[in-house]
Write a protein that binds this DNA or RNA. Structure first.
Lengths: 201, 201, 201, 201
DNA sequence: GATGAATGAGGGTTCATTCAT
DNA sequence: TATGAATGAACCCTCATTCAT
C-alpha cells in the first residue's frame, strides 16, 4: 500500500532543489542528476513525478507564480481603497520571502526560456495578465483611462525591472528600497494624472 | 596572401549569426554548428577567431553593449541641458535599431547567464554603471542628491523592465510607447522632486 | 484466503498481454510496465509470478509452442494413413487460431532472440524436433529414406517460410492458400519420389 | 582539406561492425557503443555519418539487400532459358557469401523489426517484390498463370524458410543442401504443372 | 496476493573541442 | 586562413528490478 502524501512531499522536494540549483549553478548547469542529488533522491524520480525535465521546470515556474499569487491575494483582500490596493500590489511583489535573491534569479532564468517554451510562456502570460488587470482596476479609479493604462504598464515594467536589477546583483537593492521606488513612481504618477476617485455606482 | 580586414569581417559575421540564432532558437539551442552554418562558415572557425564558444558569446554581448554606447554618445553630445541629457539617454535606449525584438531577446538571454559567467558580468556591470552615472550626473542637477539617486535607480530599472516586457512579448510595446512611459516617469519625478537647475560653475 | 486458481489466471492474463504487446508495439517496445498495464495489473506482479521479464517471455513462447502442440496432437490421432498424417500436420500449422497475425508476429520476434537466449533456444528446438520427427515418420512410409529426409526438411522450411511471409505482411497469404501451397508441395513431392506405402509390420 | 573517400570507408566499417555485432550479440544488445568500439571508432561517429542509430540500421539492411541484388543480377544475365533463370535465382540466394550464418542472423533480426519500422519495411518490400517478380516472370513461361503464381509464392517462402532454419541453427543446413531442396521443389513443381515452354514472340 | 514508489545502470544523442589537412 | 572529421564526456530518458507496505 503506497504511503499517503508522499507525492506532494516529493514534488515539493524536487521543486525546491530545482530552485536552489538554478540559483547556485544557473539554469544551463541545472541537470536532473544535480537536482535529484540535491533533493537526496535518485535521478529516475523526476520522470516518476514530472514526466520529464521540462515538466519539472514548468512545475517550478508554476510554483513561483503561485507563491506570488498567494502573496497578492490576502493583501488585496485587506485593501479598502484603490490607493491601498496599489500599495498592496507593490508590497506583495517585494515581500521579503518573494524577493529573495534565489527567487529573482530563477524568474530571470525562466524569462530567458519563455520564448522557446510555450508552456513557460503560458505561465508567464497568466502572471503578467493578472498583475496588469489588478493594477489597471485600481488605477482606473484614480485617473483617466488612457493615463491609467500607461501608468499600469509603467508600474508593471518598473516592478519587473527592479527584480531584474536585483537578480543581476549590480545594485544591492533591498526590498525596502525597491518598494519605495515603486511607491514613489506611483505617488508622482498620481499627483500628475490623478483625479478625485470616482465613487463606484 | 591574407586578405586585409578579413578578421573584422569574420568576427562580425559570426556575431550577427549568434544574435540571430539566440533570437530564433534560444540561447540553449544555439550551438557552434548552428552559428557557423548560419554564417556560411565552418564550425572550426569559431575557435580560430574567438578561442571558444564562451569567447564568441562574450564578444557578442560586448558588441551589443557597444551598440548601445554608440547610440548614447552622440545624443549626449548634442544635449545642452540636464533635461536634454536625460531625454537623450531615454531616446538612446529605445532607438529603433537597438530595441528590436532581436536585440531585446539576446539581452534577456545573456542576463540569465550573467551570474554564472564573470566575463559576462563584467560587461553587464560596465553598461550598468555607465547608464547609472549618466543618469545620476544629469539628475543631480535637477533635484537633491538622495532624490536624484532614487530617480536614477528607478529610471534605470524602468528602462530595463520595459525591455524585458518587450522581450517576453506580453505587451506589444513599441519604442514610441516605451519612450513616452519613461519620459512620463521622468517628468512626474521632476515635477515632484525637481528644483531649478543649478547653473554649472 | 488465497483464491484457488488465481495463479493460473494471472499467468494467463500476463502471457496474453505480452502477446498483444509484442504484436502491437514490437518486442523492443514491450516493457513490463506496458504488459502489466495491459493486463490491468501492477508492474510488480511479473516478478511475483515469473521471477523476471525473461521468465515471462519464456513462458509466453512456451505457451505458443504448447498451442501448436495442442493443435497437432488430436489431428494426428485422427489420421489413419501416412498421407493423412502429413495433411494433419500441415492443417495444424495453418489452423485459423494459430496462424493469426498476432501469433505469427510473436513467433518471428522470438526467432530473432533465439540465438541470444538458451532458454528460448531450447523451446524452439523442442518444437522443431517434434515437427521434424512427425514429418519424417510419415514420409518414410511413402518414399525412400534419403528422399524422405529431404522432403521433411523442405516441408518444415516451407511451413516456417509461409509464416514469415505472413508476419512480414508482404503477401496477403491467408491460411487456406498457405495450406494449399504446402499440400501442393507435398503432392508433387510424393508424385516424384513416392513409392507404394509400406504396410506397417 | 578533408580526405577523399573517407566517408565510404567509414560507412562500410560501421555497417560491417553492425552486422558482426548483431550476429554475435543480438540486435537487442547491439548498441552504438559496441558497434563503434568494434569499428575502432568513437561513438559520436555514428551520428556523423548516419544521423542516428536507426539510420545505421537502415543502411545496414539496405547493404544486405544490395548484396543480394548483386548476387542475382549477373546470374540472371547469364541465364538463357526460364529454367536457367530459376536456377540462377535459387543459386543467387544460397551463394556462399550470402548465406553465411552472419548474414542470415541479421536478416532474421531485421525481420523481427520490420513491423515497427516503416523504413525497414520499405527495404524489405523492395527485396520481396523483386524476388517475386523475377520468379513469376520465369515461371509464367513454364506453366499456366495460376500455377505459376502459386509456385512463385511457394518457392519464395521456401527460400526464406530455409534461411530461417539456418539462422535458428536447428538444422545444420549448408548452402548446397538448401540449393538442392529448392531445386527439387522447383523440379517437382514443373513436372506436375509444367507445360512445354512457350516460344517468345 | 498485490502494489507502485524508488532506484540506478545503460541507452541514444548532442555538442564543444581538437587537429590533420 | 579555413575546413570538417573525429572525439568523448555529459546530457536526458527508459526500464528491469527491488522492497516496504
Amino acid at each position: 500500500m503506497p504511503k499517503v502524501g508522499m507525492e506532494q512531499l516529493r514534488r515539493r522536494q524536487l521543486i525546491e532543489a530545482t530552485i536552489a540549483s538554478i540559483h547556485e549553478e544557473g539554469l544551463a548547469n541545472t541537470t536532473i542528476q544535480r537536482i535529484s542529488r540535491r533533493a537526496g533522491l535518485s535521478s529516475g524520480i523526476v520522470a516518476h513525478y514530472f514526466e520529464d525535465k521540462a515538466g519539472l521546470l514548468e512545475a517550478t515556474m508554476r510554483s513561483l507564480a503561485e507563491d506570488l499569487r498567494l502573496s497578492v491575494v490576502p493583501r488585496l483582500r485587506a485593501a479598502r481603497t484603490p490607493e491601498e490596493r496599489l500599495a498592496a500590489l507593490i508590497d506583495a511583489n517585494f515581500a521579503a520571502d518573494l524577493s529573495s535573491p534565489e527567487v529573482e534569479t530563477v524568474w530571470l532564468s525562466f524569462w530567458g526560456q519563455v520564448r522557446q517554451s510555450p508552456n513557460l510562456a503560458r505561465i508567464q502570460r497568466i502572471y503578467e495578465r493578472r498583475m496588469q488587470s489588478n493594477l489597471l482596476f485600481a488605477l482606473r479609479r484614480l485617473m483617466p483611462g488612457p493615463d491609467a493604462e500607461r501608468a499600469a504598464k509603467g508600474l508593471a515594467a518598473l516592478i519587473d525591472g527592479l527584480w531584474v536589477k536585483c537578480a543581476l546583483r549590480q545594485l544591492p537593492l533591498d526590498g525596502n528600497e525597491a518598494r519605495e521606488i515603486a511607491r514613489d513612481y506611483l505617488a508622482t504618477s498620481l499627483a500628475q494624472h490623478g483625479q478625485p476617485p470616482r465613487s463606484d455606482p
